[in-house]
Amino acid sequence: MPPSKRCEEWLGRISLYLDGELAEHLCQELEQHLKECPDCHVVFNTTRRTIELYRRYGRVSMPEGARESLFRALNLEDLLREEPGSE
């Protein structure tokens, strides 16, 4: 069952809340609503968890082969083996 109109308004603000950009008095009202409304509570918690999961597992880095070709394309292949931060 989709949440009510009032709930939609609160859900529209959860990103601002999560990013610390929601005005303080609205933060308190939102927190109050989350306490009273199990549906919004679930949406809020699972949204936060979604972000956490992507932060932890969503990154993609250059595959080693791509990095090597890049260094070669820029005539830097002699610097390839020097790892960042190594002595």
């Binding site: 990154r59 880095s61 250059m62 890049l70 260094f71 820029l74 020097e82």
Partner: peptide
Amino acid sequence: FAAMIDRCGDTVYH
């Protein structure tokens, strides 16, 4: 140049 690749390369690729 190499340092710049180290710094920004992963996100460029991403």
